[in-house]
Amino acid sequence: MTPDLFYAFTGLVLFITGLFGIIALQHLLRKLLAFNLMGSGTFLMLVGLAQHRNGTDPVVQALVLTGIVVAIAATALALVLIRRYYHLAGRVSLERDATDEGRP
């Protein structure tokens, strides 16, 4: 197994861990962290698999840079939304509780 392939498998573990977290965890910040874990895992797999195949591959490295920027944009937007949601609703999860009955 080459080091690149090892990265790919590490990415796989990260992706699955993140997937479990984003479904199982309630707290919005934890969900967001889990999303970032999934994202890092995906990028590691993208680079690891491609470099295992091609050697150093500038194309996937550029793709991952683009992917990171997109992930940063999404994370920052989610943080702004979460913080404002917390401020207005006083809640850190999307779960409904008894006080929500009758509201849309």
Partner: peptide, 28 residues
């Protein structure tokens, strides 16, 4: 609206990541 858009955002992001993972495998 924030609650709805956060749910939407999280679903959309997870969907995109699954798609991107598929792209990674296809490129490999």
């Amino acid at each position: 609206a924030l609650r709805a858009s956060l749910r939407y955002l999280l679903a959309a992001l997870v969907g995109s990541l699954f798609y991107l993972l598929g792209v990674a495998l296809v490129y490999g």
